[in-house]
């Protein structure tokens, strides 16, 4: 599923990240890489998605979060 479809408090794993190099650089340098475990903390309509990953609370805007495929674990 897409990260934007995940529910709050879901424990998950990043499956894939898509996008051009510039976006990829930004997203991976903050720690969102394939295989990383994370927790969806908050996912409200029209708001950025909040995830907890590598001991960090990260906020991603929805358009970017749509490009991230995740799975529940």
């Amino acid at each position: 599923m897409k990260l934007t479809d995940s529910k709050a408090d879901m424990q998950g794993k990043i499956l894939s990240v898509g996008g051009e190099d510039h976006f990829m650089n930004r997203i991976t340098s903050i720690g969102i890489t394939e295989g990383t475990r994370f927790q969806t903390v908050r996912n409200d309509k029209k708001m950025p998605v909040l995830i907890y990953l590598r001991e960090t609370l990260i906020s991603l805007n929805r358009a970017d979060a749509e490009r991230i495929e995740v799975e529940k674990i």
């Binding site: 510039h22 930004r26 903050i30 609370l57 990260i58 906020s59 991603l60 805007n61 970017d64």
Partner: peptide
């Protein structure tokens, strides 16, 4: 434009 990509930021404790 190329620096404008959406917000990817951490919320520090």
């Amino acid at each position: 434009n190329d620096t404008k990509s959406g917000m990817i930021m951490e919320l520090p404790p």
